[in-house]
């Protein structure tokens, strides 16, 4: 069944067979994204957020990854599509901004040559035309003197400029879907502010759909319309950004909010971290994967240790949450116990 949404991911599963067992990096992920909107995917290392982006772009290794489910991009299904079809879309209709531009750009080719290549793969134009286009793109992402810098090598750029060049390369074919995997993690705050501002204005200009993958809740709050929180390969909470930040109902989301010192609030004497460690993907805990670290697990009457919870509508009714706690109880814990602690 085709999809009406611009991007719709249905029950996406990506797993990798290893000698130690099957690693279910992404385990039944479902979400939709419209043009001009931004989805923030949040999670810690190993939660499956980056594998999701690689899966959508078809960048996973087809020989060792097992992918199932459906990915509909503008009416076209990608999971079952041939590698050639996906290649035709990648860099063209969908593009990616990687975390570390120094290791994801080729050190032997000039920045210009790499953008020209990205353009000419999808457009039958001469090198001169493509070069003009590359210079134009570099100018638009705010590189000074783009006609000269186009012949520089990546190492001659600063970290912030490299990330801009990376964005220029991703945008050169006017992609309608842009996936940014930790786009500002390697950057300083002032440069991060510039890059986020740039991504925001470019998105408005191109009306593209944006998926931003990060562990930084500040960055997510800054850009996202919707937020999807991942833990152990599963979506644990999904909904509008304002709801997720104001009325979160999953204990893991509470934990993330409590772990983070905040500049916009009076200083807390103590952070409230999540106890324990992120789970090993090879040996996920039974039932709810978060239960060994969850302070509220005893209140589920043993359900959380045995049964995997379903993604159900939250008590507020505006988002989805995967938790065994009764809906009203979740709401009560947040308003009476967790929220006052965070704002104390």
């Amino acid at each position: 069944m085709a999809s009406d949404a611009f991007l719709e991911v249905r029950d996406l599963r990506i797993s990798f067979p290893t000698d130690d067992g099957l690693v279910r990096s992404v385990d039944g992920l479902t979400f939709t994204l419209e043009r001009g909107k931004t989805l923030g995917i949040v999670g810690e290392s190993g939660s499956g957020k980056s594998v999701t982006s690689l899966g959508i772009l078809g960048l996973h290794n087809r020989r060792n990854a097992e992918v199932s489910g459906e990915i509909w991009l503008d009416g076209q299904e990608l999971v079952g599509a041939s590698p050639d079809t996906v290649r035709g879309l990648r860099g063209n209709k969908m593009a990616m901004i990687f975390q570390d531009p120094l290791s994801s750009m080729h050190p032997y080719y000039t920045v210009g040559a790499q953008i020209v290549e990205a353009y000419r793969v999808h457009n039958r134009v001469s090198k001169q035309v493509a070069r003009k286009h590359a210079i134009d793109m570099l100018g638009r992402v705010g590189i000074p003197q783009p006609d000269r810098r186009v012949d520089d090598y990546p190492h001659q750029f600063s970290g912030g400029m490299r990330q801009r060049a990376m964005i220029a390369m991703a945008l050169v074919n006017d992609p309608e879907l842009l996936i940014a995997d930790e786009p500002t993690t390697a950057l300083d705050v002032t440069v991060q502010a510039q890059i986020l501002d740039l991504m925001h204005s470019l998105q408005e200009e191109f009306d593209s759909a944006l998926i931003i993958i990060t562990h930084d809740l500040g960055v997510v709050a800054e850009l996202s319309d919707d937020v999807l929180v991942m833990y152990g390969g599963k979506c644990v909470e999904y909904g509008p950004a304002t709801t997720i930040f104001e009325q979160p109902e999953h204990p893991y989301t509470w934990g993330l909010l409590g772990s983070m010192p905040r500049m916009d609030r009076p200083n807390l004497d103590r952070l409230s971290p999540i106890p324990g460690l992120p789970p090993s993907m090879i040996n996920l805990p039974s039932g709810c994967a978060f239960h060994p670290r969850c302070a509220y697990e005893p209140r589920t009457g043993g359900l959380a240790t045995t049964l995997t919870p379903e993604l159900v509508p939250a008590a507020g009714g505006r988002h989805l949450v995967r938790c065994h706690l009764p809906a009203q109880e979740r709401r009560r814990i947040w308003t009476d116990e967790v929220k006052p602690e965070l704002e104390a």
Partner: peptide, 13 residues
């Protein structure tokens, strides 16, 4: 530097 830090509050962005 202070103003560049993203605020984790979508309502105030």
């Amino acid at each position: 530097l202070m103003s560049a830090v993203p605020v984790p509050d979508p309502a105030r962005r």
